[in-house]
Amino acid sequence: MSRRTWVLINSAVLLLCLLGLWQAVVSLKHLPAYMLPGPTLVAVAIEERFPSLMKSLLITAEEAGGGLLASIIVGMTVAMVFAQWTWLRQLVYPYTILLQTVPIVAVAPLIINWVGPGLIAVSTVTFVICLAPIIANTTQGLISVDDNLIHLFVMHKATPAQILFKLRLPNSLPNLFTGIRISAGISVIGGLTGELFAGSAQVGEGGLGYAITYANNQMETSYMFALVLAATLLGFSFFFIVMFLEWMALHNWHESKRADVGE
């Protein structure tokens, strides 16, 4: 049996033990379901309300994913502009760092006020919190190019566009993916936060954040657990997708993706 399979089996056993312990505590202490439902009740809630759970999950995935994607496109563009014009970078860069420290909970109502409630507003909230890590990391990667490589390009009469796309951009890929990984993690938080403020056009319909507020008001604690689980899974799948893309882009050449590390 390979080491990897062994680790997987151990993790699965640990998970089962924890679930068992949880169920035991709930059953032995006779805790009411609205305080702490057992895993079986949560499972029942998932099964009974699976369609609406999936619907909420997809809505949030769309909002968070859309915001994340927009932040990657805009963030990369801004970083490339920064890399081309140093004076502009020096002028504007401090403000992009400021962007990172803006408390999103305070700004979200404003954004919704401007954009109007709904998918676009929630995506915008996500976009705002995802943008700074992308800009900061990509800019770093674009400007930290070996001086001699730049000299080499200059000696061979490379145009500024060639230096940007053939040298700076590939050089920044590891940093870009670091930024995307950070942003992917917080994009789900952005989506949920946005939904808490934006609410929904129809009662009972909406993303995970909206559904969590709703379930909380209705004291449907077991469904709340199901929603939290769904939100966690969503964040995890974003992270996993980014890790996969990163591996695809870097495994051939980048030191951090060496296949033989630790073997």
């Binding site: 070996d146 000299h151 050449w253 030191e255």
Partner: peptide
């Protein structure tokens, strides 16, 4: 410039190529 080539102290290869 066309007549000259420069070889640096490090190999300065592009790792992604």
């Amino acid at each position: 410039r066309e007549l000259m080539s420069f070889i640096f102290q490090d190999s300065t290869l592009m790792p992604w190529r």
